[in-house]
Computed example of a mutant assay.
Amino acid sequence: MIPFVDLKAQYISVKDEVDAAVAQVLETTQFVLGKEVAAFEREFANYCNADYGIAVNTGTSALHLSLLAAGIGLGDEVITVPFTFVATAAAICYTGATPVFVDIDPVSYTIDVKQIESAITERTKAILPVHLYGQPADMEPIMAIARRHNLTVIEDAAQAHRSEYKGQRVGSIGDLGCFSFYPGKNLGAYGEGGMVVTNNPEYARTIQMYRDWGQEQRYHHVLKGYNYRMEGMQGAILRVKLRYLDRWTEARRANAALYDELLANLDVKTPVVMPYSHHVYHIYALRSPKRDWLQQQLNEQGIQTGIHYPIPVHLQPAYSDLGYKSGDFPHSEQAAKEVFSLPMYAELQSSQIDTVVNTLTSLLDGVKVA
């Protein structure tokens, strides 16, 4: 079997360092926040070319607290996309604000910047672009629109660690950048984790309080906060793994290049790298009207695949109250019917990629693989 993601292979490659880091946390007993988390905050912020990093327990929490720090609340609107993981919209709703969707660009799968301005109303307070699959949204026009309308830009960079837009690391382009360290991410914890990066000291201070019960100091609660703290072990593990992120990213990009080469003549759409983008391939997403059949056949041949995402948020039952209907965002809806993801991780071997592509080739040529 060729797994969609192989977390064990990565762990084995850094096992001694990770085990030592975990043991150190056990010795110090700094299990929540602590020195390891503080060091990781500094190192990851520096990696993103941002002034501040605030570690939290999930990427969803990073989004939630960024919105709160930006003053988003009841009655406000935040512009984003429906073709994303549900957490993007959920975090907006947590604040009492309303997600306002615009469609994606059908080539990049990120927000269609040409549709943003027409969605702005007097209640709009922020734009929340999603750097989907490891490719950044087109940030330059987004920032220009935001500045014209005095809007906050919060980057959902949950899938885009190390990605760049015109040479600038994502997360540090907008007012706030939000990352997830869910285990399958390009930089993944051994559990849950998230981070906000920003260059704004007031945002950083506010989020630091919000994540820890709104405390400015122990038992002095300035804000009505949350228990969104990162665990010490996750900070220690992520510090180890951050040192390998460049190497792992280049391995992903090499694997993607090999996929591109081998799939070039097949009747599937491979990822398009936009001219402004340094793509980091959290997901290697193909597109085909035969998606469901191909996925079933690949699975039967022992090749795991994924779908990110089969139902856009505006058509999810939980978000029916937003009032959208089928046909409102045709590019998002069509992508949801056709996109599927091949195995992609740094440890993926070229021989495994050959097997995936040979199987796909046989399927698309109508030949049953033995």
Rank of each mutant, 00 (worst) to 15 (best):
A144F: 00
A146Y: 03
R147D: 12
H149C: 08
H149P: 04
H149L: 08
T152E: 04
I154E: 01
E155R: 03
E155P: 06
E155V: 07
D156A: 10
A157N: 12
A157C: 15
A158N: 09
A160R: 04
R162D: 10
S163V: 05
S163Y: 02
Y165I: 14
Y165E: 07
G167P: 05
Q168H: 10
G171C: 08
S172M: 04
I173T: 05
G174D: 02
D175P: 00
L176G: 01
C178Y: 08
C178K: 05
F181P: 06
Y182P: 06
P183Y: 10
P183A: 11
P183T: 06
P183Q: 10
P183I: 07
P183C: 13
G188R: 02
Y190I: 11
G191D: 06
G193E: 05
G194E: 09
M195N: 03
M195D: 05
V196A: 08
V197N: 02
N199F: 01
N199W: 04
N200F: 03
N200H: 07
P201T: 13
E202D: 12
Y203G: 00
A204P: 06
A204S: 13
R205T: 11
I207C: 07
I207N: 04
M209L: 11
M209R: 14
Y210E: 12
Q215E: 15
E216K: 11
Q217N: 09
Y219S: 10
Y219L: 13
Y219A: 12
V222L: 15
V222I: 15
L223Y: 14
G225A: 05
Y226G: 06
Y226E: 10
R229G: 04
E231K: 15
M233Q: 07
M233C: 08
Q234L: 03
Q234I: 08
A236M: 09
